[in-house]
Write a protein that binds this DNA or RNA. Structure first.
Lengths: 197, 197
DNA sequence: AAAAAATGGTACAGATCTGTACCGTTAATG
DNA sequence: CATTAACGGTACAGATCTGTACCATTTTTT
């Protein structure tokens, strides 16, 4: 089997470092050291550090898209269950030891200038993700899908921030219960009986 | 009237710059330039940049405490109304042009190392604030005050992040309505009739 | 095996940032 | 008015960070 390319190794190591320790805090030298790659190899594969950051954001965008794909595969006949599964998946992520919040939100905070490429790309990343969820909410039969999606987004972002700041002192159970209830209430509020979708 | 001290001018200018453009993005030279102070004067008043960051965090902690004091003065006879007024005050803040999220949350993202002084102080800042709100919820007669406070905290943090990332595309009305309803539901869920406190 | 592509190693330029040293000047205070 | 405290100006040390230049080596492909 072919050896992992230098580009892949760099992106893998950098993604981990960027996420865990922050983009601005991690220098090129650190990435080179931990990925065991020559500096010249780095700049052959990435035009600049910002270029690597862009790849890092695209990588997480792919991860999010795959999560959505997965819940759609697991529950092909119920958009409602897809929403609930998405919440569960999200809670599981928050429980993992190395969890450090949303990479897109963190990036926008590390690059406050809203005209900066990294900032723009990060905003676009979450938007695409939540747009898909809004479509899911619509397909699931929510009376006001955009409203449900926005409330879910608020709740999730808040839970992310809380779990990030409070670490193990944060219990995601309350978030989980509230999010599930929120979905149900929006799906059932406009009709008394449920129709399987 | 006495001229503003150099220390005050530095803190005032730095707080604005740190908040608007980020702590790591702002160098000492920029602070010196915009506050019209000599570099030597800076280091006479602050031992280091981190020392200034600590003062910046304390400054925002004071602002939060004053907001709480104010709503308690405005509604001395109803803890419930204090909670609602706090939400309104928060919404107003989000609507102001230069709003750039929670300085404490942003600081923890800019300094991901949880053992870093800035990170620790920022976490402590929000905790103190929300502890006071939890006490308010208890005094207002919430059945589960800690739960109400945590849900409010999640919603607020989420709304902060959304308004930060979406800027003017974010309409805080949905947040406002949801937060007010949340407070009411937690205050009235355990009893049918309201008793003025 | 020969050619081509990818990688390694390293020195260094150039910019930036924090913090110090040193001295002169202004403002408050007795 | 004299003393003391606060401030201004600036040069510079030391560290760090991004990015380039140059050449040797290894791996892959033909």
């Amino acid at each position: 089997m072919p050896k992992e390319t230098a580009k892949n190794r760099i992106l893998r190591v950098a993604s981990d470092l960027f996420y865990r320790e922050g983009i601005r805090a991690i220098g090129i030298d650190r990435i080179i050291l931990e990925s065991g790659v020559a500096k010249s190899s780095f700049y052959r594969n990435f035009a600049s550090k910002d270029d690597l950051v862009a790849a890092y954001l695209e990588y997480h965008q792919d991860l999010n898209a795959k999560d959505l794909d997965e819940v759609q595969r697991q529950h092909p006949n119920s958009n409602a269950m897809q929403l609930h599964a998405l919440i569960d998946k999200f809670v599981e992520k928050m429980k993992t030891p190395g969890y450090r919040g949303c990479p897109f939100a963190n990036t926008t905070v590390e690059f406050p200038d809203s005209s900066h490429d990294n900032h723009i790309k990060a905003v676009k990343g979450t938007d695409e993700n939540w747009n898909r969820i809004a479509i899911l909410a619509e397909k699931a039969g929510a009376a006001r899908p955009l409203e449900l999606a926005e409330l879910l987004r608020m709740l999730c972002n808040g839970a992310i921030m809380l779990s990030y700041m409070k670490k193990h002192d944060f219990n995601p159970d309350l978030f989980s219960a509230t999010a599930h209830t929120l979905v149900d209430s929006h799906l059932f509020s406009w009709t008394v009986s449920r129709k399987d979708d």
